[in-house]
Design a protein around this nucleic acid. Structure first.
Length: 547
RNA sequence: GUCCCUAUCGUCUAGAGGCCUAGGACACAAGAUUCUCAUUCUUGCAACAUGGGUUCGACUCCCAUUAGGGAUACCA
């Protein structure tokens, strides 16, 4: 019994069987196969959605395949429920994998399993073959030994790492290996690199172009002592077997590219094309950094739901970072789906973009302003169900009234208002329509008191009030009041002779605006009066006598 | 320390040696629109990190410097 059988005592599939089982994909010319491969270590990061969006678009607009693979080889870091969260988050953002897992975590596709922990035997089959071929070896170095190695390298000025003459177990005699194995000493399997650090190699990246690297000479760990592969090895096996043509991933992987290329070569596999994208960053003091899971609530995709951004707004914002010509395209193709926009990988920025909420708000306002009243109502309703019970209760008992409120300067308007960036902005826009929420602050009362004859003006208006007045008729009445009470009918007239007027028309209207809404800034007053109805408006107007 | 990536208005960016007096969008400011706000329209503000080359000519190519980021794990 060879030492290899001692390492893998249980029967394993052979490499030939695996190659036969997982056939090369038969795809039309130019079809790209991409994948998103997150680790289930917590919530879904906005950067994960960003990368997934790019991968999904690139695959689907080339009639290719986009799949999801769960990279759970680090059992210590795995978080309960994280896989489900990944699946549902992708589905929420309409990033639908063709293979891997559906929105509910059910496995789909013919290259299964798509969860690395379930592929242990597959990796081991290849590792066994590498052991047989002399391209890998067991290493028994303890943590202490490795620490000492690094220390020694540091003081001698050598480059750190397990390589060449520092690779103590690289050429252990078989008897020594068997001895350790029999004694039950824990071990890992290392790749036996044939590379030389002095060799310069050139690698093509889809975004950064040709990059020069020293060749990899590190004997990296490919199988950990728990029998699971490391990322590097799993990546090579999986993306080969699953037929990935384009690996699009974060640029933190750029420096392991020489290793990955070498591994593909050593296995006799054709390497995929690589594109390394820069992460989304944020400003921290006066330096920028990656959006962090721990410190930035906006790193979690659920944040955007909680605050109430329409998901397409988030996607379109991200698309604008992916290709800056997206917004031009959007302007010229207002009714098309963002999925009709051709994403080009090489137009991505090679440096990381700062996440810009102001821009997100702008895009979101644009999108919400184009919704019909019913669309916005149901979107707000869905949001309230999960995030705002007060608003939900209000909507449940006043749905027609709230629809009417949301229609103001929206339905039939040539240019809809753009004052809602997120659904959590809605309560403030509608609350004053409800008597329970309506109040006039002391500050506002003082505003009214500062206007000459305010009580007489309002009392003069009450008899001629009609909630069905058109905008023009209503405004005509305001003008009449203005001339009766010596207010200028426009700003110019007032500015010409400020001392001969009590104010201008906007001052006069302000009395009514505060009385009716409690605010100085609102949508068109005639429409508000119409929506509020006669009784409510009159009772608010009559309140003037108590100010 | 070593290796790798990156560097244009406040932000996202256009720019493939002369089309650049450096373009657009967001933001900001001013003005216009029969009331405030939001729209809409007009106008304005504002950038090639620094220093060397190469070239008739450099935002663009090369080299250094500086500054950011990443890697250097039995994490991904």
């Amino acid at each position: 019994m060879s030492y290899i059988d001692k390492i893998f005592p249980n029967p394993l599939p052979t490499v030939e069987e695996l190659e036969a089982k997982y056939k090369r994909r038969d795809l039309p010319d130019g079809a790209k196969v991409t994948r998103v491969a997150p680790s289930p270590t917590g919530f879904m990061h906005i950067g994960g959605i960003y990368t997934a969006l790019i991968c999904e678009r690139v695959a689907h607009q080339s009639n290719g395949v986009f799949f999801l693979r769960i990279e759970d080889t680090d059992t210590k870091r795995e978080v309960e429920g994280a896989t489900e969260l990944i699946c549902s988050s992708l589905a929420n953002y309409d990033i639908i994998p063709d293979e891997g897992f559906d929105a509910f975590g059910n496995e789909i596709g013919s290259y299964a399993p798509y969860k690395q922990s379930a592929r242990k035997e597959i990796y081991q089959a290849y590792i066994k073959q590498m052991l047989l071929d002399g391209r890998a070896y067991p290493c028994f170095a303890t943590t202490e030994e490795l620490e000492k190695l690094h220390h020694d390298q540091e003081i001698s000025g050598a480059r750190p790492g397990y390589y060449g003459r520092w690779a103590k177990y690289r050429d252990s005699p078989v008897e020594k290996i068997e001895e350790k194995l029999d004694a039950g000493v824990p071990f890992v399997i290392r790749f036996k690199s044939h590379g030389s650090y002095d060799n310069k190699i050139v690698i093509q990246d889809g975004l950064k172009g040709k990059i020069n690297f020293p060749e990899n000479d590190l004997d990296i760990v490919i199988m950990k002592s728990d029998g699971l592969p490391t990322y590097h090895f799993a990546h090579v096996i999986d993306d080969y077997l699953m037929g990935t043509t384009h690996v699009i991933r974060g640029d933190e992987w750029l420096s392991s590219l020489p290793l990955h290329i070498q591994l593909f070569k050593a296995m006799g596999f054709k390497a995929p094309k690589y594109t390394h994208i820069a992460p989304i960053q944020k400003m921290d003091g006066d330096s920028r950094r990656k959006l962090s899971k721990r410190h930035d609530p906006e790193a979690d995709v659920r944040y955007y739901d909680t605050v109430g951004y329409p998901r397409v707004a988030v996607i379109e914002y991200l698309l604008n970072l992916v290709n800056s010509n997206f917004e031009d395209w959007r302007r010229n193709n207002q009714t098309k789906s963002y999925k009709d926009f051709p994403v080009s990988l090489n137009k991505l920025s090679p440096s990381g973009a700062l996440f810009d909420f102001v821009k997100l708000n702008n895009i979101s306002k644009e999108i919400i302003s184009k919704m019909t009243t019913d669309e916005i109502y149901s979107a707000v309703y869905d949001w309230a169900k999960k995030n705002d019970s007060n608003l939900l209760a209000l909507m449940d008992s006043n749905s027609d009234y709230i629809k009417a409120i949301l229609s103001i300067e929206r339905t039939g308007a040539k240019n809809a208002r753009k004052d809602i960036a997120k659904y959590s902005d809605v309560p403030a826009e509608i609350e004053y329509f409800f008597d329970e929420k309506f109040a006039i602050s002391d500050e506002m009362k003082n505003e009214i008191r500062s206007i000459k004859n305010y009580r007489e003006i309002v009392n003069a208006y009450i008899p001629m009030f009609n909630e069905n007045d058109s905008k023009d008729i209503w405004f005509g009445k305001m003008i009449d009041l203005a001339s009766k009470f010596n207010f200028a009918k426009n700003g110019k007239e007032y500015k010409a002779n400020p001392e001969s007027f009590n104010g201008d028309i906007s001052t006069l209207v302000k009395i009514f605006r505060i009385l009716i809404t409690g605010k100085t800034q609102t949508p068109d007053l005639s429409e508000i009066q119409h929506v509020m109805g006669k009784d409510r408006v009159l009772s608010r107007l009559n309140f003037v006598n108590e100010i």
